[in-house]
Amino acid sequence: MKCNRLVDVGRRQFLRGGVLGAAGAAAATVMPAAQAQAQTARALVDYPSSKLANIADLKVNEPMDIGYPDADSPGILLKLGTAVEGGAGPDGDIVAFSVLCPHKGFYMSYHAADKTLNCPGHFSRFDCEKGGQQVWGHATQNLPQFALRVDDKGDIYAEGADELIYGRLSNVLQG
């Protein structure tokens, strides 16, 4: 799978240029529904509620590329196939993570065989079945996981993140 190595700079352009379209292997990147900028100064960051997909769009163990809390923050939405702690949906197996390595911000790839996200920069890896726990690596935090809500129609919404996303000092960009 040489395409996932660091020499493949295509995905990194996603970050550098801050543009959509150079996304990965699965479906097209989903835009957040609302402009993701804080309007008022409150104690907590106001996260947008963004529809990412419908359950029917997901195939087991095939990640869908997403952007959350905004299009410049790439992530994946994933139906694992087995229930996990913190999993959403009727089967308790839907999760979403940032795919920017919290060490140096390289774009990670999903390894379906053991359900991990792997960094081509310095070889850190994170377990999608254990809340994004760093299995081994250099990052000083586990992977940011997006809080999900699934409504009666099966629409999946992201509504928060539990760690600071690489490359931004506010998860919801402000300014």
């Binding site: 990194r12 970050l15 550098r16 801050g18 905004d70 410049d72 923050s73 920017l100 919290p102 140096k104 911000g105 390289f106 774009y107 920069g121 990052a139 000083t140 935090q141 760690e163 600071l164 690489y166 490359g167 931004r168 000092l169 960009l173 402000q174 300014g175």
Partner: peptide, 28 residues
């Protein structure tokens, strides 16, 4: 500091790229 006036003179209202100098983790 603010997103437009800070130690590094970068526009921090934008997502920073890989290997950026303009980010630090909560552990830092």
């Amino acid at each position: 500091g603010t997103t437009d006036s800070n130690w590094i003179g970068e526009d921090l209202s934008k997502q920073q790229g890989a290997d950026t100098k303009a980010w630090y983790a909560p552990s830092m």
